[in-house]
Design a protein around this nucleic acid. Structure first.
Lengths: 193, 193
DNA sequence: GACGAATTAGGTCATCCGTCCTAGAAATCG
DNA sequence: CGATTTCTAGGACGGATGACCTAATTCGTC
C-alpha cells in the first residue's frame, strides 16, 4: 500500500468524523487536531468545507463501487452476493448502533441543510440499488427486481435507524434473520444452489 | 381553542424548524424571526437551547400519545388501528420526502451530537412500539408481538429514509402496499373482520 | 547541490451563535 | 388607583467557526 498523501488522510479522517459527528457539527479544527496538522493547512487542499464533503462523497462512491465489484467477483450465486450486502449490518453493527448508517444519515442531514451535494450523496444508494437490481434479475425476478432491490434498501435502512434510536442490541440480528428468510422464500425465483 | 401563549408558539415553531432544518442548524434568531419576536424574549422562556429541545420533545410525546389514544378510541379492530399508523406515511409523504421522519431524524442527529436528550427523543418510538405491541397482542400474536411491532417501525423508518434520500415518489405508496399485504397475510393471527 | 513546485505552519478576519443583562411595557391584583 | 409581577425589546459579551493570507519548509527533479 502506498503511503497516503495528506489529502487522502484528510478525506479519510473527515469521512469518519462526518459519520460519527455529522457534517455540519464537524469543524476544520477537529479534523486537523485528529490528524495532528494545522488548521490553515486545509486551505491548500480544500478551499471550502463543501470541497471536503465532495471529496468524502467521492471516496465513499469509489469504496462502494470497489466493494460491489469484489462481491461480484466472488462467485456466481446472486443469492450469496445479496447475503454479502445484508451481512454489512452484522459486520458494522457496533457503529450502526452508535451513529446509524453513514449513507442514510448523511443523506438526511444534507436534505435538511438543503445542501447541493444531497443528490451526489444519494449516488451511493444508487450504486447499491443498481447492483441489487442486477442480482435480482439474475435470480429471475424480472420486472420485480427494481422493487425488490429498493425494498431491501428500505429494510436495511430501517434497521439502522431503529437500532441506533432505541439502542436495542437485538434488532439487528433479529431483522437480519428476517431478511435472510424473506430472501430464501421469495416466490418464483431460481432456487438456491 | 385558547389563544396560544408565546411559550407555546416558540415550542411549536421550534418543533417545525428542528424538523425541517435540524436541531443544531436552527438558531434562536431563526425561530424568533419566524415568530416576529425578539431574541431576548427567548431567555425569559428558555434559559438554554437544550431547554427548547426538551420542550419540543415533550410536545411531541404528548401529541403522539393523544394521537394513539384517538386511534385506540376509534374502533375495536386492532388491524384497522395498525393501518392508521401506516397511513401516516401516506398522509405526511410530502414532508417525509423532503425531511425524512421527524422522530427518526432527530434521534439520529442527537446520537451523533452525543446529546443527553437522545433517550428522551427515542421515547416517541417507545410510545409507538408499546402501542403497536398491544395491537398485535390483541390480534393473537402473543410472544411475537414485540418483534412484529419493531419490524413495523423498522419498515416505516426505512421507507422514510429511502424516499427522502432518493427522492423517489413511488417508494412510499409501493412499500405501504407491501406493509398492507404483509399485515393481511401474517400467519396464525385472528382473521380480519 | 540548485531550483521550482508542493506542502506546511501559524495567524488574521468577519461573522454568527448561545448566553446574558437592562430598561421599559403590559398585565395582574390588592 | 398604585404596586408588583410578568413579559418583551434590543443590544452586548465571549467564544467558536469558516474563510483566507503569508512566510517558511520540504520534496522531487535535473
Amino acid at each position: 500500500m502506498p503511503t497516503p498523501t495528506t489529502r487522502e488522510l484528510i478525506v479519510e479522517q473527515a469521512d469518519l468524523l462526518f459519520y460519527e459527528g455529522g457534517y455540519e457539527a464537524t469543524s476544520f479544527a477537529e479534523i486537523a487536531a485528529a490528524l495532528g496538522i494545522s488548521r490553515g493547512n486545509f486551505y491548500h487542499h480544500f478551499k471550502t468545507k463543501d470541497d471536503i464533503l465532495e471529496a468524502v462523497i467521492t471516496r465513499r462512491i469509489e469504496k462502494t463501487r470497489a466493494m460491489l465489484d469484489g462481491w461480484q467477483a466472488e462467485g456466481v450465486d446472486p443469492r450469496a452476493r445479496i447475503l454479502s450486502f445484508i451481512r454489512l449490518l452484522i459486520a458494522n453493527r457496533a457503529k450502526i448502533m452508535a451513529f446509524g448508517c453513514p449513507v442514510g444519515t448523511l443523506s438526511l442531514e444534507l436534505a435538511k441543510l438543503d445542501h447541493v451535494a444531497q443528490d451526489r450523496a444519494a449516488e451511493v444508494f444508487g450504486l447499491f440499488r443498481d447492483w441489487l437490481v442486477r442480482q435480482f434479475r439474475a435470480l429471475g425476478a424480472g420486472e420485480r427486481s427494481e422493487a425488490l432491490a429498493l425494498h431491501l434498501l428500505v429494510w436495511s435502512q430501517g434497521v439502522a435507524v431503529m437500532a441506533s434510536s432505541l439502542r436495542d442490541e437485538t434488532i439487528i440480528p433479529r431483522e437480519v434473520e428476517g431478511i435472510d428468510h424473506w430472501l430464501a422464500t421469495l416466490p418464483d425465483l431460481a432456487p438456491a444452489r
